[in-house]
């Protein structure tokens, strides 16, 4: 059985041209466009976090057909500013062999699991937020600047994990300013044009 692809089409607004995309499983699209054009907002709409008048579907299923929490578990948005609500990092996801492997692969110390999120550096929080999302095994990941706070070497480690996920079937839609990252991961570009 082939995995469904994520499709979307958005009518033009006063500031952005109409756009359409299809993101297959096992593939990665990089979302580009001038800053301020609404790339973050587009990811949020695809995750159904912002109201919109586009049409988005996952295979035959329309966004509105699924309860929103279920949609978001399958089409998961990872914000550039990660949010934390509990006292320790480990309270935010289940810590098991899979997540420990990820944490090691991302080169974050395991001791950070017991720290308060506010005591982590921005880059550590960014990687832990990725671990948290990956641990739920979504079908698609919508990543907003996933390596913006990371040095080159660490960013490579994150990209390696993402490439791995892609191979095992996860579809990726990534907003990034790092063109090297785009080159390495992406199977295509999705351009947003200002009107």
């Amino acid at each position: 059985m082939t995995k469904p692809s994520l499709k979307g089409s958005f009518p033009p607004t006063s500031t952005v041209d109409a756009m359409e995309f299809e993101l297959a499983a096992h593939s990665c699209l990089v979302l580009t466009g001038p800053s301020g054009v609404g790339k973050t907002t587009l990811l949020r709409k695809i995750a159904d976090l912002d109201p919109h008048d586009g049409v988005i579907s996952l295979g035959p299923i329309k966004q509105g057909d699924l309860p929103a929490p279920e949609w978001r578990r399958r089409v998961m948005y990872v914000a550039s500013n990660s949010g934390w609500w509990a006292g320790r990092v480990r309270d935010h996801f289940s810590v098991d062999d899979n997540t420990l492997v990820l944490i090691d692969a991302f080169a974050v110390g395991r001791d950070k699991l017991d720290a308060s999120p506010s005591h982590l550096s921005t880059g550590e929080r960014q990687r832990m937020a990725l671990v948290r999302a990956l641990s739920l095994q979504p079908d698609f990941l919508l990543l907003d600047e996933p390596t913006s706070a990371l040095d080159h070497e660490t960013a490579l480690k994150v990209k390696a994990v993402l490439a791995d996920r892609k191979r095992s079937g996860c579809g990726l839609l990534v907003v990034t300013h790092d063109s090297a990252q785009a080159e390495r991961l992406s199977d295509g570009m999705l351009r947003m044009r200002a009107r």
Binding site: P69, R72, G83, W84, W85, A133, L136
Partner: peptide
């Protein structure tokens, strides 16, 4: 102030 924390939970599939 807690917008990021609330939306992170929503994005992860919380009600």
């Amino acid at each position: 102030n807690e917008r990021d924390a609330i939306e992170a939970q929503l994005a992860l599939g919380g009600s």
